[in-house]
């Protein structure tokens, strides 16, 4: 559990980060909270000869709440939980963050690291897809914006280039009811299945619904069809069943220590149904 030797860089601005990335290419990786990368290095599953710590780089923190909500990449899950204005504007973020790992990890783990790493077990990617967030990355050619729903290609493979750094996530202030429902084996575990749901209610019917699932494929799964199955309905039992059915067409879980595929698919359906019910009750 000891990493191979590496060079530690701690630049104090983004220009410094980008120049180190340019100089060392594949041999360099940036680190935010380090809670995904450091264990991989200790297991010697990740070889990072040049580690760039983002702690001293300015401009990556801060939470701005307005019609658009922007969260800096270095904002921690703990910061999110403690931010009351954010919790009022987008309560699903606090609900989800409280289900990530444990307090010690949440003090260190960042939004940017969580979404940029491309680990299908992470909770923020699915959440950001549910919120239709946009990721901002900066690279040698300047800033670029990538929709969360287009960002994830495969496990640890994303739309970010190796020489680019995630700087912020932003999304329109969500409307309606929300829920983040997660089943896990214990505190600190990745999800057996998790569902992020935002629903807008108009009169007695569903005006819009956004649904994303976590750890049920090699990427987070935004299921447009599941959301569509609810729109125009009164979100009754049949509608929920239709949404679950649509979601099951979109996920592709694999067997692991949490259980076999049949179990995961069943639980995914149960978790989504519960999330929809809770979100609808809040809409």
């Amino acid at each position: 559990m000891i990493p191979a030797s590496f060079e530690y860089h701690r630049p104090n601005d983004m220009a410094g980060v980008l120049s180190i990335l340019e100089e060392h290419g594949d041999d360099a990786r940036v680190m935010a909270g380090g809670h995904s990368l450091i264990p991989m290095m200790k297991l010697r599953m990740a070889d990072v000869p040049h580690l760039i710590d983002l702690q001293d780089v300015g401009g990556l923190g801060g939470i701005t709440v307005g019609d658009t909500i922007t969260i800096g990449a270095m904002v921690t899950q703990s910061d999110i939980i403690l931010h009351d204005a954010l919790a009022d504007a987008a309560p699903i973020l606090r609900e989800a963050s409280l289900q990530i790992a444990d307090p010690q990890v949440r003090y260190m783990g960042t939004v940017g690291g969580n979404v940029a790493n491309g680990d299908p077990g992470n909770d923020m990617p699915g959440l950001m897809q549910c919120l239709d967030a946009t990721f901002t990355v900066v690279g040698p050619n300047g800033e670029r914006k990538i929709p969360a729903r287009d960002f994830y290609e495969a496990a640890y493979m994303t739309g970010r280039e190796d020489d680019e750094v995630m700087t912020a996530v932003s999304f329109a202030k969500p409307a309606g009811g929300h829920a983040y429902e997660k089943q896990k084996r214990k505190i600190g575990d990745y999800a057996t299945a998790a569902a992020a749901v935002q629903i807008v209610k108009n009169g007695g019917t569903c005006a819009s619904a956004s649904i994303a699932m976590t750890n049920l494929s090699d990427t987070p799964v935004y299921s447009a069809a599941a959301g569509d199955a609810l729109v125009g309905t009164s979100v009754d039992g049949d509608a929920i069943k239709a949404a679950v059915g649509a979601m099951l067409n979109d996920i592709d879980p694999v067997e692991d220590n949490r259980g076999p595929v049949a179990f995961k698919r069943h639980v995914a359906g149960v978790i989504l149904a519960r999330a929809i019910e809770r979100a609808w009750s809040r809409a």
Binding site: T192, G259, P260, A262
Partner: peptide, 16 residues
């Protein structure tokens, strides 16, 4: 008796 094994028991007993 972790989640999936309990689920399997329920499943095999026809409770789903």
């Amino acid at each position: 008796h972790d989640h999936w094994r309990i689920w399997r028991t329920a499943n095999e007993l026809g409770l789903h």
